[in-house]
């Protein structure tokens, strides 16, 4: 599909708004190479200073889980409550923990 497209391959765009913040997916652009993809992403997704850093990835390189798989993929973590800090009882007054 993308390979034969004359509209150039599709890239997914991720923007980091501030230093240290996670990269957020904002949409996609068409481009034939990395440089073009980065510039297009900058022109389209950061016109209002929305970001300080951009990642672009060819869409075909993204692997995604589906909602059908959601149950088997994500439910098991739900019953492992000991992974969360709120599971444990710490006496009041104890600091730095």
């Amino acid at each position: 599909m993308a390979q034969n497209s004359n509209q150039l391959p599709l890239w997914e765009v991720f923007i980091q708004s501030n230093s240290g913040a996670p990269y957020k997916h904002v949409g996609s652009v068409h481009a034939s190479d990395k440089q073009m993809a980065l510039q297009n992403a900058r022109d389209i997704y950061t016109r209002r200073n929305e970001g300080r850093s951009i990642w672009v990835v060819l869409s075909e390189n993204i692997a995604a889980s589906t909602s059908d798989e959601e149950a088997e993929f994500f439910d098991p973590s739900d019953d492992k409550a000991y992974r969360r800090p709120t599971f444990y009882q710490i006496p009041e007054g104890v600091k730095n923990i």
Binding site: H30, M36, Q39, N40, D43, R47
Partner: peptide, 11 residues
Amino acid sequence: PILEEDLAMTN
């Protein structure tokens, strides 16, 4: 020649 470039040039 392609929408992205239309925007790049007007930019």
